[in-house]
Design a protein around this nucleic acid. Structure first.
Length: 710
DNA sequence: ATAGGGTTAG
C-alpha cells in the first residue's frame, strides 16, 4: 500500500513543497487540480499528504473532510490529523487528540511512536497525558526517544518536574533533546542546581559540549545574584563552542546577567550583539526595568524605534512595569497609546500590565476601563483587577468583582483568594471571609503562604483570634508576613502577652524579624504598659538585627512611655531622637499630656506642633483644650485662629460594622441609622457606667467621642 | 508522507 506510482511523483514533490511553506491558498488550488485530474485519491501517499497539508495549515475542518473520504486510512493518516490538532494548542484540542487516539484504536489501526510524540506535544492536560502514557507503554512505544522527550516535556510544562525526571531516568535512550527538555523543566521551576547538574552530565554522558538548546535552557535557570559566576562560566563556554551566533543563546545571556544583578554585563552583551531581534530588545528593556533602572529602560524603549525594531507584547509588558514602579502615569499613558497603535489592545499580558499600572498610579477607573475592554479576561487579569481595587482601598468593588467572576465560572488561584481575603480583612467582613475560606478548601488551595497568611490575618482582623491561630498553626511553611499577621492580630485584640510570646517563639524558630514585626511587638508592649520590655525590644532592633528604628518605632516608644505616665522621659526621648521624626511624636505626647492633665508639658508639645505647621485637626483641638484647662483664653483663641488660617479641617469620622449580613455605617453627626435613638440610649448607659466606676477616668478621646455621639 | 527540545512577559 505505501507505494507511490510513477505518474504521481511530480504532484507529490509539489505537495511537499506547499506543506513546508504552509501555503494554504496555493495548497487549496492544487488540491482542486488533483481532484479534477483524478490524482487526489489515486494512492494513500497523496491522500495523506493532502490531510497533512490542511492539518499543518491549521484548517482542521478541511483536513478532517479529506481524511474521512480516505477508504482505508493508515497510521500516517491518523498521525497527520493528530499532529495538526496538537499544533493548534487550544485548550479544547487535547480532548480532540484523545478522541482521535481512541478512534484509531477502534478502527484497529495501531498507534506508533510518531502518534505518541504528537499526542504528548499537544496539550497541557496531565490526566490525558497519563492515560496516553499507559497506552504507549502497553503498545511498546515507550522506549522511543521522541516519545520519551515529548512526554517528559509535557510533565515539565505542567510543572510536575518529579514525574518528568522519572520518565527521563527510565528512558532507555537519551539525546540532547531529552536533556534540553529536562534542563528547561528544572530552569522554569527555578531549580538551578538540578539544571546545572544535568548540564554537567550532558558532557559526560553524551560526550558532547551540548548545543544551543542546552545552553539556552540552562541559562534561563540562572536568575539569582549568587549564580552570576556560574553564568559567566557558561557564557565563556558558549563562546568557546561557537554558540553565540545563535541569537537565542545571546538573548538568554542578556537575561541571565540582568537577573543575576549585573546590568553592566547585560548592557555590554547587548551592545556587542550582532543582530539584535525583538526578543533581545525586550529582554534588555525588561532587565533594566526589573533592576530598578526605570529611566534607562524607558530610554532604551524609545531608541528601539530608531533601530527599526518594533516593540512586541513582551517589550510593552516590560516597559509598562517600569512605569508602574515609577508611578509614571504620563509616560504610561503614552505607551498605552503606542501599544494601541500597534494593535496590542487585546493582548492579555499587555492589558494585565496596564491594569496594574493604572491601579498602582491610583487611576482605578482607567484600570477598570482596560479590564472591561477584554471580553474573556483570564484568571491573572481578573486577579489584577481585584487586587487593584484592594490596593486602592475599594474593598467592596473588589468583592463585587470577585462575585461576578464566580458567576462566570472562572476558577480563582491563590493570589485571587489572597486578595479577596485581604478585602474581607479591611472590611472586617467575617461572614464573607468564612465563605471564601470554604472556597479555598473546595478548590484544594491548601494553606500555602499567600492563602494561609491572608486567612489568618482575616480571622485575626475580624476578631476571630482562635480561628486565626488555628489556620496559623496548620501552615507548614510560614514566612515573616505570616508571623507578623498573627502577632499583630493578637496585639490588636488585646492579647499583648500572647503576642509577645509568639514573637519569642518566632525568634526561637530562627525567623528574622523585620520592621513591621517590631511595630507590632512595641505596640503590644504599649497596650500592656511594659516600659522595660519596650526599651529592650527597641534596642534589640539594631543591636541584634541591624534594623535602624524608623519613625513608627519611635512613635511606639513615645506611646509606651507616655501611656505609662513617664511624660518627661518621653519628651527627652523625642528631643534626643536622631531621625527626622516630623510631628507625629509630639502629637502622641500632647494627647498623653491631656489625659494625664500635665498641661504645661502639653502646651510645650502643642507649640512644637504649631511651629512645625501641623495639618492635623486633632493637634489644634487638643492644644486649645490644654490652654482652656490652664485658663489661658487668649491662647485658646490664637490656636483656633491658626487652625482657620492654615485651613485645617476635620475629616468626619466614619465607622461600620457587619451584623447578620447587613453593614451598618455611622458618620459623625449623621442621624441616618433607623435605630439611632436606641443606640444613643445605650451609649448614655455605658457612659454612666464608666463614670460610676471608681478610678475610671475617661480619656480625652473617649470623652470627645461621647460628646459627638450624643 | 507523519514526530520531540530553547531565549523575552502579566
Amino acid at each position: 500500500m505505501p507505494w507511490l506510482p510513477p505518474q504521481s511523483r511530480p504532484f507529490f514533490s509539489e505537495l511537499v513543497e506547499l506543506i513546508q511553506k504552509r501555503n494554504l491558498p496555493k495548497g487549496k488550488a492544487f488540491h482542486g487540480r488533483l481532484i479534477r485530474n483524478g490524482q487526489a485519491s489515486s494512492c494513500l501517499y497523496i491522500a495523506n499528504c493532502i490531510v497533512n497539508l490542511y492539518a499543518k495549515c491549521g484548517d482542521l475542518v478541511k483536513a478532517r473532510i479529506v481524511f474521512d473520504r480516505i477508504p482505508c486510512r493508515d497510521v500516517v493518516s491518523w498521525n497527520c490529523l493528530i499532529n495538526g490538532c496538537s499544533q493548534l494548542g487550544s485548550s479544547s484540542s487535547l480532548g480532540v487528540v484523545m478522541e482521535l487516539l481512541k478512534g484509531m484504536m477502534v478502527e484497529n489501526v495501531l498507534p506508533n511512536a510518531h502518534t505518541f510524540a504528537g499526542v504528548f506535544s499537544g496539550g497541557l492536560d496531565v490526566t490525558g497525558g497519563r492515560q496516553a502514557q499507559a497506552v504507549a507503554f502497553k503498545i511498546g512505544c515507550f522506549g522511543d526517544v521522541f516519545v520519551g522527550s515529548s512526554l517528559l516535556n509535557l510533565y515539565c510544562k505542567s510543572s510536575i518536574v518529579s514525574d518528568a525526571r522519572k520518565v527521563f531516568d527510565e528512558m532507555s535512550e537519551r539525546n540532547l533533546v531529552s536533556f534540553a527538555a529536562m534542563i528547561s523543566g528544572y530552569a522554569s521551576q527555578r531549580l538551578a542546581k538540578e539544571a546545572l547538574d544535568l548540564f554537567g552530565l550532558v558532557r559526560i554522558e553524551e560526550d558532547e559540549s551540548g548545543n544551543e538548546f542546552i545552553f539556552t535552557s540552562v541559562l534561563s535557570g540562572l536568575t539569582v545574584p549568587e549564580l552570576l559566576d556560574t553564568g559567566k562560566q557558561i557564557h565563556c563556554l558558549a563562546l568557546k563552542y561557537g554558540l553565540l551566533c545563535f541569537s537565542a543563546v545571546g538573548n538568554a545571556i542578556v537575561t541571565m546577567y540582568s537577573k543575576c544583578g549585573s546590568s553592566d554585563n547585560a548592557l555590554q552583551m547587548f551592545t556587542l550583539f550582532d543582530d539584535k531581534n525583538s526578543i533581545t530588545w525586550s529582554a534588555m528593556v525588561t532587565g533594566l526595568a526589573q533592576s530598578g533602572d526605570f529611566e534607562k529602560a524607558l530610554k532604551l524603549f524609545s531608541s528601539m524605534h530608531f533601530a527599526g525594531i518594533s516593540p512586541s507584547e513582551f517589550t510593552f509588558v516590560g516597559v509598562i512595569n517600569a512605569c508602574s514602579d515609577l508611578s509614571a502615569i504620563e509616560e504610561g499613558k503614552q505607551i498605552h497609546g503606542y501599544s494601541l497603535k500597534l494593535g496590542f489592545e487585546s493582548q492579555m499580558y499587555v492589558m494585565t500590565a496596564l491594569v496594574d499600572m493604572y491601579a498602582k498610579c491610583s487611576s482605578i477607573s482607567d484600570a477598570r476601563k482596560g479590564f472591561d475592554y477584554l471580553l474573556e479576561p483570564d484568571i491573572v487579569l481578573w486577579t489584577s483587577m481585584i487586587g487593584g481595587y484592594v490596593t486602592n482601598g475599594d474593598n467592596e468593588a473588589a468583592l463585587n468583582l470577585y462575585c461576578r467572576m464566580q458567576m462566570e465560572g472562572i476558577m480563582p488561584n491563590e493570589l485571587t483568594m489572597a486578595s479577596v481575603l485581604k478585602a474581607c480583612s479591611s472590611l472586617a467582613a467575617l461572614e464573607q471571609g468564612k465563605q471564601i475560606h470554604g472556597r479555598t478548601i473546595k478548590y484544594g488551595l491548601g494553606l500555602e503562604i499567600p492563602v494561609g497568611s491572608a486567612l489568618s490575618t482575616m480571622y485575626a482582623k475580624c476578631g476571630s483570634l482562635e480561628d486565626g491561630n488555628k489556620v496559623f498553626r496548620r501552615m507548614v511553611t510560614k514566612d515573616i508576613i505570616s508571623w507578623n499577621a498573627m502577632i499583630s492580630g493578637l496585639s490588636h485584640n488585646g492579647h499583648g502577652n500572647e503576642a509577645l510570646q509568639l514573637f519569642e517563639e518566632m525568634l526561637y524558630e530562627g525567623t528574622k524579624p523585620d520592621y513591621i514585626t517590631f511595630v507590632n511587638v512595641l505596640s503590644a508592649c504599649s497596650h500592656m504598659g511594659l516600659v522595660d520590655r519596650g526599651w529592650s525590644y527597641f534596642n534589640m532592633m539594631f543591636d541584634k538585627f541591624g534594623l535602624v528604628p524608623k519613625v513608627e518605632h519611635y512613635a511606639c516608644m513615645v506611646d509606651i512611655l507616655s501611656r505609662a505616665g513617664k511624660l518627661k522621659e518621653a519628651k527627652e526621648f523625642i528631643e534626643s531622637a536622631t531621625i527626622d521624626h516630623g510631628m507625629c511624636l509630639w502629637r502622641i505626647l500632647l494627647s498623653a499630656c491631656r489625659n494625664y492633665r500635665d498641661f504645661e508639658l502639653g502646651a510645650y508639645a502643642g507649640e512644637k506642633l504649631m511651629e512645625l505647621g501641623s495639618q492635623e485637626s486633632s493637634a489644634y483641638v487638643l492644644l486649645s483644650s490644654v490652654y482652656a484647662s490652664l485658663g489661658r483664653k487668649e491662647d485658646v483663641e490664637r490656636v483656633r485662629r491658626l487652625m482657620k488660617l492654615r485651613g485645617v479641617s476635620k475629616e468626619p469620622g466614619c465607622s461600620w460594622i457587619e451584623l447578620k449580613s447587613r453593614v451598618h455605617v455611622f458618620v459623625v453627626g449623621d442621624e441616618l441609622h433607623p435605630q439611632i435613638g436606641d443606640i444613643r440610649a445605650e451609649i448614655r448607659r455605658l457612659w454612666k457606667h464608666i463614670m460610676d466606676e471608681e478610678d475610671c477616668l475617661p480619656t480625652f478621646e473617649l470623652a470627645s467621642a461621647y460628646s459627638f455621639a450624643v
